[in-house]
Amino acid sequence: MRRLAILGALLLVSCREVPSTHRDWAAMDCNFAATLHGEGRVPPEAALDTIQEWTRRYDSLFTDYDPHGPLSILRGRLGDTVRPDPRIVAILRGALPAMAASRGSLDIGLHDLKEVWGLDAPEPRLPDPALVRRALRRRFGTDSVSSFRPPLEILADGRVVLLVDSLPIDLGGIAKGWVVDQLSRKLVELGYPVHLIQGGGEIATHGRKAKGAWKLGVKNPRATDQVVGTIALESTAAVSTSGDYERFFVLDGVRYHHLLEPSTGRPSRNGIASATLRCATSAQCDLWSKPMFLLGPGEGTRLADSLGIDVLWVRELPGGLCGEQTTGWKTILWRDTLAACPR
């Protein structure tokens, strides 16, 4: 009888719900959210206060709105050698190899081009082609880009040599993933090894929930209140999506979105509606989600396999959506509704 009582008590303890604490906030031009499971060395609300404050600080470090902010040091004259904040250098060190390996699909020197397209304007419209050409010339020295040219070089001691004159550098597309990784490390330090952090389209999961795997949805690019599939992550991983539904306008039946092809200065028209990646870190996902969207499964599969990234591409065909994926994607796929794309 006594053994039964002990067993019952143990069962009750093991079935006890692990408390979770959730918060949403706005920072770095997007929505951040965090869910902490369990209780750590500090109360969960205090841990959330800490990482929210961190996003505010990173916001002012990486912003390109402030013409005198820390990033402006990179907007110097051709040949200048400058010493940016080490955190900026850390992101640049990840970005330059990705820019080269993606043959320029990722480019941190396209701030002007994004401004020309003005997708966030209240009444977006097609830009003047002359302005698009001017933005490309400013970045690449020509309006017909045939090969990748880095805008800067990083020296071993952390100094940076500027290879393009007065070029604004834009880390908006790649800093969030790095920030999410930093927040995740901080939460572990504060005693929260089981957590989920979202920064815009970047998600990092850490540890394993008592209830089981983390379940993440893949948005339907043409009905964003629905999902086309669900993946299950057993522990620490990162996921991100680049989609043509995030910032766009439609004119004469054509969708103009924010994923600009550096070689043409125009939104990609390769038929891909979204690319969702599973990576080891959020920084890696953030660097590679746009290139994977632009490259598509043809070239993207080879690159993804070499980088250890799993990818699902959702393609739009006249008859509806279909999916193409790397081999590794199938190992995390829990449910999906997408038909395979015709070969």
């Binding site: 959210a33 970047e202 983390w214 379940k215 993440l216 949805g217 893949v218 948005k219 996921v239």
Partner: peptide, 10 residues
């Protein structure tokens, strides 16, 4: 609660 069936949708 906030989660529904999914923990998050990127």
């Amino acid at each position: 609660g906030t989660e529904g069936d999914l923990d998050a949708v990127p």
